[in-house]
Simulated scan of single mutants.
Amino acid sequence: MLYVERLRRRMRVLFGGVWVAESEDVLLLFEPARYPVAYFPESDISAHVLERTEKITQHPDLGSTSWYTVRVGEQHVAARGAWQHTKLPAHATELQGRLAFAWRAMDAFYEEDERILGHAADPYHRIDIRQSSRHLVVRYNDRVVADTRHPLGLYESGFAPRWYVPRDDIHESSLTAVKLQTFCPYKGLCSYYSIGDARQAAWSYTDAYPEVRRIANLVSFEPDIVSVFLDDVQLHLEPGQTVVPHGPDRNLDVAELERAPGGGPEMIAGG
């Protein structure tokens, strides 16, 4: 389903040390299999930061899309840093006169004075965590990697359950840390492990956000890479369990994840 909904929170966009957009009238666009995208009224975007380019693309549902360079002075330039749907069909007129900023191209997005990482937050996204006594066993080839009767089930909107295992129930020597890190706006920074020659077969939120602190430093295993059995039934990754990134800032380092303090730069004059 393609739909928009009012965010009902002040959102600001930081680029080049200044707020290039600030609005209490942001709309979130929800598209199938994509992260939500924030659209700002033209009137709430700073003057002189947008330069229209010759680039025009076609959105399958929203028509022609014009692209903009975002510029702050001579040092801070984001080519194709923003876009606007210019020939909207009748079912999408709510987006008339609004622009979206490419998440990775900007320095940061804020709701009030708190930085929002990864992508615009989905107000309908929910995570429930439940303690279980079910028997979970993880095998790779003929080796038992994990064996627990104390897994935690993580139930996330739109996704199949993920099972997290305490470190005490894992043969730690089986896990080899890899350099890859990704970021989830709801759980935090995620680290990955290989098991033998099975790359990225497991992951852990070693310092999970307070809202999901119960899974902090526990490990979950990818059932399509290693064999995961729950009460002797082998699990498999269900179809439709991926989303198409639409500009999320993946592979953030630890410094990028630090929450900035309140306050901050001013809007550009004329914004």
Rank of each mutant, 00 (worst) to 15 (best):
I215G: 08
T242P: 00
R139C: 14
V226A: 06
P239C: 13
P166Y: 03
Y193S: 14
G188V: 05
R6G: 10
L14P: 01
C184P: 11
H135M: 11
A208L: 08
V144Y: 03
D197I: 10
I170C: 06
N217T: 11
A82S: 12
S173T: 15
L117S: 12
P41H: 08
A208G: 07
R162W: 00
S43Y: 01
Y39K: 02
H85I: 07
G262S: 10
F101P: 02
A201F: 02
D44E: 06
A160Y: 05
L95C: 11
L117H: 05
L29V: 13
E112V: 05
F40T: 03
P223M: 04
R6K: 15
E24F: 01
Y193G: 09
A208C: 05
W203Q: 07
T57H: 03
D142R: 06
D128A: 15
D44H: 06
T242A: 07
F159L: 15
E112Y: 14
W67M: 02
V49F: 00
S133E: 09
C184K: 11
A208W: 04
R259K: 10
A160E: 15
I127R: 04
F229M: 10
K187T: 11
I268W: 00
A100Q: 05
R34D: 12
L175C: 13
N217G: 02
A21L: 10
R149H: 11
V165C: 00
V72P: 02
D107H: 12
E266D: 11
V244K: 02
Y205M: 05
L218S: 06
H76A: 10
W103E: 09
R134E: 14
A202T: 08
Y155R: 04
V18M: 03
D113S: 02
N251C: 06
R80G: 01
A108C: 03
P123D: 04
Q241W: 01
A47E: 09
V77K: 00
L99P: 05
R149G: 12
G118M: 07
G153I: 08
A90T: 03
A160F: 00
G264A: 03
A90F: 12
D113G: 03
P161M: 00
E51M: 11
D122Q: 14
S174C: 15
E172S: 04
E266F: 01
L180E: 14
R259T: 07
W103F: 14
I116M: 07
Q200T: 11
D231T: 10
Q58R: 14
G81Q: 00
I170K: 13
A146N: 09
D169T: 09
Y205T: 01
P261L: 08
D224S: 08
H135N: 08
P223S: 10
P210E: 08
R199D: 15
A108G: 12
V37E: 09
A102S: 14
S174R: 14
T93S: 06
L95F: 15
P36W: 04
A269N: 09
T182S: 15
Y39P: 10
A90R: 03
D61S: 15
P41T: 11
S191F: 08
E54F: 12
D147G: 01
H125S: 12
E211W: 02
D113Y: 00
Y140G: 03
E24Y: 00
